[in-house]
């Protein structure tokens, strides 16, 4: 599902980051570990086409992401990749339901309310979907973040430090929820984190080191 080879990326004015080659199969769930500055976010952004590598190969769902043009990468990301951020980001002016529909609209220019309702039911938040973001608790918002990552039937979900602001109980609940729903839809899950609480729940871990 995901293959990378000799991936290199340079920020202007800093040393080059080079990443280990790895390949993941469909439905695999892995943890990317490393200290801050080790390039976790950079790797996720390279995989999702937010950044382009200096050199190397990125293949996601048999598409060479590194070779796509800017607008193709945007549309590829919308249709194949679900993103979960460290903080819960929503459009404040519209309801959660519309936030979900918006994600579908951006990806496909159409809205699929059936799938959306199914996912919201699955996560137990369908009764909250009429509310605006600031009326929900952090935990509830986080579930909507998961829902939004899934509304376009992605092959891959990338989560960047999703648990850093959660207490132990919520952290456990969140990761279980994410794991089980990705399992159900056979989605490849990558979580970039330095949160050691997640380690025992994932059997596959990639360690990122300081650049060589």
């Amino acid at each position: 599902m995901i293959i990378t080879k000799e991936l290199k990326f340079t920020y202007p004015g800093t040393a080059t980051l080079s990443f280990k080659d790895f390949s993941l199969t469909a439905g695999q769930q892995i943890l990317i570990k490393g200290e801050s500055g080790s390039g976790k976010t950079t790797l996720l952004h390279l995989l999702s086409g937010i950044l382009t590598p200096d050199s190397g190969i990125i293949e996601v769902d048999e598409v060479r992401v590194d070779q796509l043009r800017a607008h193709q990468r945007d549309s590829f990301r919308a249709n194949h990749i679900g993103l979960i951020f460290q903080r819960n980001l929503f459009i404040k002016s519209i309801s959660m339901y519309k936030n979900m529909l918006l994600a579908q609209h951006i990806a496909q220019s159409k809205e699929d309310r059936e799938i959306l309702m199914e996912i919201l039911e699955e996560l137990g938040i369908s009764n909250l979907s009429g509310k605006k973001p600031h009326h929900l608790s952090q935990g509830e918002q986080q579930r909507f973040s998961i829902a939004r990552a899934l509304v376009n039937n992605p092959k891959v979900v990338l989560a960047d430090e999703p648990t850093s602001s959660l207490d132990d109980v919520n952290c456990h609940r969140f990761s279980q929820m994410l794991k089980s729903i990705c399992e159900k839809y056979n989605i490849t899950l990558l979580i970039a984190t330095h949160d050691s609480r997640l380690e025992q729940q994932f059997n596959c871990v990639i360690e990122l080191n300081e650049s060589k």
């Binding site: 990301r77 919308a78 951020f85 459009i91 990806a107």
Partner: peptide, 17 residues
């Protein structure tokens, strides 16, 4: 003020244009 919303839209696949 809402630059994060813009970042969100872009990361959800909204093109620059």
């Amino acid at each position: 003020r809402e630059v994060h919303e813009l970042a969100l839209l872009r990361s959800l696949g909204t093109s620059r244009t």
